[in-house]
Amino acid sequence: MARRKLLDLARPSRQHLLGYILLAPAVLLVGLIVVYPLLMSIDLSLQNVKLPRPGQHAPYTVANYSKLFSSQEFWMACWVTLKLVVTVTIGSLIVGVGSALLVNNRFRGRTLARLAIALPWAVPEIIAVVIFARIFDTSFGLLGWLFIKLGLTDRMIAWVSTPGPAFWAVTMTMIWKGFPFVSIMTLAGLQSIPSDYYAAARVDGANAIQRFRWITLPLLMPVLGVTLVLVVLWVFRDFSIIKTLTEGGPLKATQTLSIMTYDQAFGFFNFGYASAVGVVTLVICIVASLLMLGRGSKAMY
């Protein structure tokens, strides 16, 4: 009888047990595919190893971290990552919000326009990058040809083999790939704003900019806040666009922390050092997320 009571999950005092049981598979799965590799990475980052072998463990050391923090390459990768996060996030927000405002209006072909905006999101990342690699091709690329025809330059631009253009080539590709997400999220946010607010504002004589500033933007902030966090984290960890387009070059102009991690691990087989870069990247991501979602930004939500 006592056993039956214990398993009676319908009792209010036992309801938390049902919650734990339902959560258990997800927690176990996350533990297996996220927490375990994470702990492995931390463990590896504290060993001076090139290629790890199961069953073998080198003595613990902080040599990888000492090397990392005294490395010019690491600080440059941090700077490139920061620049990329800021420019891509701002670019994606501007284009994404702008396009969402456009397709939120009633006009003929609106469904088609919405589809067109969502399309880059649906294109697999690697295919998008291959297309952009063609566009940015130094010898036969469309963009170089267009610039010459428009009289902006008299020769082809070496998009991926000069540091400045390479950074902007990566930025443009990432904005193209990233803005539809912002657009879709913003559109969902716009749909939830009651039209009465706009009607009332019109009666009060508010123009379009005032309506956007005092109605649309504040009411979109909860959606934009979450979107901002997701976009920042996406840019932080994105790998395939840079790897395919520039491989982090030239002269490390597009080498982000994720590219540096990859190169150290799979290019130079310095798995211990690469793990240290990965762990530091994770810490930066956590701090950035906390700052964006923390107390100071509660007003957004």
């Binding site: 083999s161 000069t162 070059g249 030239p250 002269l251 490390k252 190169d263 290019g267 130079f268 087989f269």
Partner: peptide
Amino acid sequence: LQYNEFGKMVQEEVQRMLI
């Protein structure tokens, strides 16, 4: 054993020379 790292270094220095 360091061929990839060496190659990357040479590639970068040559690119620097060209740029």
